[in-house]
Amino acid sequence: MPEGDTVWLAAQRMNTALAGATLVRGEFRLPQLAALDLTGATVREVVPRGKHLLIRLADDRTLRTHFRMDGSWHIYRPGGKWHGGPAYDVRVVLATPEWECVGYRLHDVELVPTTEEDRLVGHLGPDVLGPDWDLEEALRRLRSHPDEQIGVAILDQRNLAGIGNLYKVEALFLAGIHPWARVGDVTNLEALVTRARSLMLANRNHPEQTTTGIPRRGQDHWVAGRKGKPCRRCATPILLGEQGPSTQERVTWWCPTCQAARSPIDPLARTGEPDRPQPITLY
């Protein structure tokens, strides 16, 4: 699933293309919205909210879209070839005389009065990249569930909005925290959240996402995508496991040495530890 910085960058580019312009084409290719036509509407602004993208119109309506795992917005000059996928993957087309914004495989597409945006995104925690970022509120929400696994809690958009799996595993590694540690056992929770935010801030202005400071492919991440490869700090092989509620599991990479557990770990955790039968308890 795209990280919050990917959505932030998409919103900036969409805002540059659409803000202040009147649509000459506003087409939906979704059964529930197929009868709607936004042609003639003026776009006021495009803003991100966590992993949601909000297109606010001058007539006080808001179009919300979400990328989920496979969605994307592509921007073309009129007459340019669209190359985001086959035509049947197009969900929304918003065009001005100068730009064509084409939404592929978009999810949660909904048009609501702007006054009702909270119905769509009001449940989200503080936006990591938002202008109203509130660290203390994010920490309060995380700490309100002390028994939750930190790797699950930091992905819960109700606690803080924008962090995805990449920044979860990379921030946990840099903070030396085992992904399956209880939130209540994490002593440096503020440092963890601040680290995740700093990584996202560093990457938000370009599509490449590096956490090591080296953009070269294969050297850009500490643990993500590196199962079995030596830790860049201690040379211990990186482990891979699954974490999260049933049907919502996310793959999780970590270094068992740099992120050694300092408190009891959920005995049912699917950690993928080698040569140890499941269930497992680490200390």
Results as ranks from 00 to 15, higher is better:
P179N: 06
P179G: 07
W180E: 11
W180D: 15
W180M: 07
W180P: 06
A181C: 10
A181Q: 11
A181K: 10
R182W: 01
V183G: 07
V183D: 03
G184H: 02
G184K: 04
D185C: 04
D185G: 00
D185F: 05
V186Q: 00
V186F: 06
V186A: 04
T187N: 13
T187Y: 10
T187R: 14
L189K: 02
L189W: 04
L189A: 03
E190F: 02
A191C: 01
L192H: 00
L192I: 00
L192P: 00
V193K: 02
V193Y: 05
V193F: 04
T194Q: 07
T194G: 01
R195D: 01
R195A: 08
R195M: 05
A196S: 11
A196R: 01
A196N: 05
R197I: 00
L199W: 01
L199I: 01
L199P: 00
M200L: 06
M200R: 01
L201C: 07
L201F: 11
L201G: 13
A202T: 06
A202N: 11
A202G: 04
A202S: 12
N203Q: 01
N203G: 02
H206L: 08
H206R: 12
P207D: 07
E208S: 12
E208A: 15
E208L: 14
Q209S: 03
Q209F: 07
Q209Y: 07
Q209T: 09
T210I: 05
T210F: 04
T210Y: 01
T211A: 06
T211R: 03
T212N: 08
G213S: 01
I214P: 04
I214S: 09
I214M: 13
I214L: 14
I214R: 11
P215A: 05
R217C: 04
R217A: 15
G218P: 03
D220V: 01
D220Y: 08
D220R: 10
D220H: 11
D220N: 13
H221E: 12
W222D: 06
W222V: 03
V223G: 05
V223K: 07
A224N: 14
A224I: 10
K227P: 08
K227H: 15
K227R: 14
G228M: 12
G228Q: 11
P230M: 14
P230E: 09
P230I: 12
P230F: 13
C231L: 10
C231A: 05
C231D: 08
R232Q: 13
R232A: 15
R233D: 14
R233K: 14
R233T: 13
C234Y: 10
C234N: 09
T236G: 13
T236N: 14
T236E: 15
P237T: 12
P237L: 14
P237F: 14
P237Y: 11
I238C: 09
L240Q: 15
G241N: 08
G241W: 11
